[in-house]
Amino acid sequence: MTGHTISRNRYFLIFAALIVLLVLTISMAYVDLGPFNIIIALTIAIIKAVLVILYFMHVRYSSRVTWVFVSAGFFWLLIMFTLTMSDIVTRFSF
């Protein structure tokens, strides 16, 4: 929205954070943490996505309707993942 402009420095700061997180996710992948590898990878990815959404896409400064729309997309994704996986994870354990 026009109401709020983020300073240019803020964009560079976010970009630096994203690059640091990228380096972090690659280096963590080289450490064997068993099942925690994917958890860490996904956590870092989610943090990166949130940074992009909040700052590059200005959602932090957007109206409530925008927040609702963004959340709805991810909430529906969560519905699909949860209910489908509820079948997959219980199917083979007779």
Partner: peptide, 24 residues
Amino acid sequence: GLYWHFIDIVWIFLYPLLYLIHVH
């Protein structure tokens, strides 16, 4: 711009899920 950033976000997930499964 929103559309472009969205494409970036998709890749942010694709990279660890497809490339970094088992590099150790």
